[in-house]
Design a protein around this nucleic acid. Structure first.
Lengths: 145, 145
DNA sequence: GCAAAAGCTTGAGGTTGTCAACGATCGACA
DNA sequence: TGTCGATCGTTGACAACCTCAAGCTTTTGC
């Protein structure tokens, strides 16, 4: 599909594994963009929605989305105008506002998750044992302890 | 970090594997955004550059980026104005234009790849054997034959 | 108590993304 | 051969995104 031209002829297993993961990322990103547009969400709005599994300070949302604080303000403004989230002052720090999903927001987020939270096509080719293998490998890579 | 709240109490290995992959996607996306901004590229421009391992018709670029044709026009306009790409008419079809990297474009793309094409931190925790395992699993998932 | 820092907002300016409409070219089919 | 429908890229309008600098409020550390 693409990225193939970047793979040196003799790639180490690690490099090839990572390259393959990156092509999976690309596929997933396309899935994400299509899902967002089907639900009438701009990519950034869909991304914010997905992060809101639990209420988050604007602050933290900005760092998760890797963008400026002021960006999040407008983003949340629009989601709030559509009744998908509300701003809720923090009890502990009067500077911070928590972004909380409304029922409508939770429902839309669930619909988004139906489309991108499920494994992609090729995934069911793996056996049970291979799924466990993959899970264990990913646990090791992501291990934050 | 996040997404944890979406994992049902008893997830199947497949679901957990996919959830872990999605958190890795999130990390990689943040890496990508940071790398792009360090190179003075907007995310969309960086994404386009990465796709251009080989010359591509505007058309195909749009479908890879999952966006409208007209969007690519402006995107390439700006990359062209910066001397990173050129438009080259197709010999076979006078409607299509191929987007080709200039030397500067190739150089910038390489710098981008240095930052996102290398495996992330947790990756080196895997042994050689595990890297091979992961590579084989990903090959099976992505097998397009 | 006071200065420095953190959290959110505002405004300016360029970029992204979508839609509808257009000219040019191709392909199929009569 | 000629014509009709589809495809490719572009344009224009308009909303949303994103960053930066500046500002206000609140908190923290000294």
């Amino acid at each position: 599909m693409a990225t193939t031209a970047d793979r040196p002829k003799t790639a180490s297993p690690a490099d090839e594994a990572w390259t393959l993961l990156r092509t999976l990322f690309g596929q997933q990103r396309r899935r994400f963009l299509i899902a967002a547009s089907e639900l009438d969400l701009h990519p950034a709005q869909a991304g914010a929605l997905l992060q809101l599994a639990t209420p988050l300070p604007m602050n933290e949302l900005a760092s998760l989305l890797a963008c400026d604080n002021s960006n999040v303000t407008g983003l949340i403004d629009r989601l709030e105008a559509r009744g998908l989230v509300t701003r809720q002052p923090s009890p502990h720090d009067r500077r911070v506002k928590h972004v909380v999903l409304t029922d409508a927001g939770r429902e839309l987020r669930a619909r988004m998750l139906d489309r991108v939270g499920q494994p992609p096509a090729g995934f069911e080719r793996l056996t049970q044992a291979e799924h466990r293998q993959l899970r264990d490998l990913m646990r090791k890579v992501l291990d934050d302890t």
